[in-house]
Amino acid sequence: MTLTHCDDSGAARMVDVSDKPVSQREARARAYVAMSAVTLEAVAENRMKKGDVLATARIAGIQAAKKCSDLIPLCHPLALSKVEINFELQPSSGRIRIESYCKLAGQTGVEMEALTAASVAALTIIDMCKAMDMAMEVTQLCLLEKSGGRRGHYQRGDDD
Rank of each mutant, 00 (worst) to 15 (best):
A118M: 05
V138N: 02
Q140T: 14
E41S: 14
R95M: 02
A11C: 09
C102K: 00
G152E: 04
K67W: 08
M1V: 13
D127T: 06
D158M: 08
P21K: 00
Y154C: 05
D52I: 05
K82P: 01
C68N: 14
L71G: 03
S69K: 01
A121F: 01
D160Q: 15
Y32W: 03
A122M: 05
L143W: 07
V138R: 12
V138F: 06
E145G: 09
I98C: 00
A135E: 11
R151N: 13
I125F: 09
G51M: 05
G149F: 02
S9V: 10
D70M: 10
I72R: 07
M134S: 15
E88F: 10
A27M: 04
C142E: 14
A135R: 15
H5L: 07
E99K: 11
L74C: 06
A31R: 09
S36R: 09
H76W: 04
P77V: 12
M1I: 15
A131Y: 05
A121P: 14
Y101M: 07
N46M: 11
Y154F: 10
E145W: 03
M132Q: 13
C142L: 13
V22A: 08
A131T: 11
R30E: 13
A34G: 10
F87W: 07
Q63V: 13
A131H: 07
R25T: 01
A42F: 13
L3G: 15
